[in-house]
Design a binder for these strands. Structure first.
Lengths: 212, 212
DNA sequence: TGTTTATAACTGACCAGTCAGTCAGTAACA
DNA sequence: TGTTACTGACTGACTGGTCAGTTATAAACA
């Protein structure tokens, strides 16, 4: 932006810059159709320079996924660990709010979207995401559920159904908004959306009152 | 397989055969990385022959999506229309069972998976799926919800949150099983999974009993 | 016979990855 | 201070291979 000299010496920042550019291009065109030259241009470099930092196009994809997986896993674990023991219901509401905020933001959900689209063709990526993100999320949700059951806030529902009930709507939200351009009819704000969903799920998780 | 003559005349069956083959190859490699010659071989033809039936690779993708969208929309509409007026709860359970059975079966969910992965790059496909599948599903769910509210079985929750709460877990199930190879810990059977989820959601949708 | 259905060889465009060379900066010396 | 020698980040043209779509030709029918 500011009159930067053409040759800037900052090799330590380059890998991240290239990964940012790669995410943008992969996200727009998909891995196979993305051209390395486009990534290079987006990063303000020539194609050759990109190969000084990454051995191949696939290495960029791997780097990208690793980065994103790390962030996601950290976020999920932190959030649940923070709120779970004290107040499972509030922690659950917070988790859904965070999930919908993230999944509704095209900048944030770009990486998960990419993983969704490409993981089928890259077993290594699928395995990495599974162990670094999904397994972590499952453990966190399991802990949250257990805490809720112990405190009497939740019924002892199946953990895998609980995981699908919690994470699924977030994925649906992502797909509807960022892939299909589906605007919600009523609830524009992701936080309201999250609260409406929390309202359904928390009610569903409550121990059944023996009425009716 | 069986000693079929090399030149068989059955042009009326060809388009569907080619679409089947295209789905298999697109699903395995993604649209961009799929080779038309692979599709042709999978269909037992030469590449040139494929171009007698489809003008381009993209035309195959379009045909595929159109076919799949038609089936999905029909299924969703029928199921809800059948059960809604009489017994919304039972209809909802049936819908979830059907959803999980479909989303858990790699043969059936191949087309939706493909659409998920590619719709971002093909606005026409996204628009088609949206109008032919998503809008139809939304209407159907809205009707089911309204019927449930009227009969007193459901609370009057937000329709879009309801849509995400219902469809989302199905998508999550698809992703976990077919993309990430995530085996459920407890519930192997999709029908059990659907019932566990219905248990959570139906309880959540019930009018709140003023206790606690 | 003419028409339909198919093939296989071909073309032209495209692109991942390479590499010989360029240039900005820097440091040591005079 | 100006000069020389050096480094390593960067460039862009090139190569080798791939693949969508075309076409000349032929077999199978009617």
């Amino acid at each position: 932006m500011t009159s930067a000299p053409k040759r800037r010496r900052r090799p330590d920042a380059r890998p991240d810059e290239i990964l940012d550019a790669a995410l943008a291009v992969f996200s727009a065109k998909g891995f196979a159709a993305a051209r390395v030259e486009d990534i290079a241009r987006e990063a303000g470099l020539s194609k050759g320079a990109v190969y000084l930092y990454f051995a191949s196009k696939e290495a960029m994809l791997n780097g990208l996924v690793e980065q994103s997986a790390g962030e996601l896993a950290k976020g999920a674990e932190q959030l649940v660990a923070l709120g779970a023991p004290q107040d499972p219901e509030t922690a659950f509401r917070g988790l859904l709010r965070m999930l919908f905020a993230a999944m509704g933001d095209p900048d944030i959900n770009a990486a998960p979207r990419l993983v969704f689209a490409e993981a089928g063709r890259f077993p290594e990526i699928a395995a990495h995401y599974r162990s670094q993100v999904l397994d972590v999320a499952r453990r966190a949700l399991r802990a949250l559920l257990a805490a809720g059951v112990e405190s009497g806030a939740f019924r002892d529902v199946d953990a895998d159904a609980f995981m699908r009930a919690t994470g699924g709507p977030g994925i649906a939200h992502m797909a509807l908004t960022s892939i299909f351009g589906f605007p919600p009819d009523q609830l524009t704000d992701p936080a309201e959306m999250a609260d409406a969903l929390a309202d359904i799920l928390l009610n569903g998780l409550k121990p059944r009152v023996p009425a009716l």
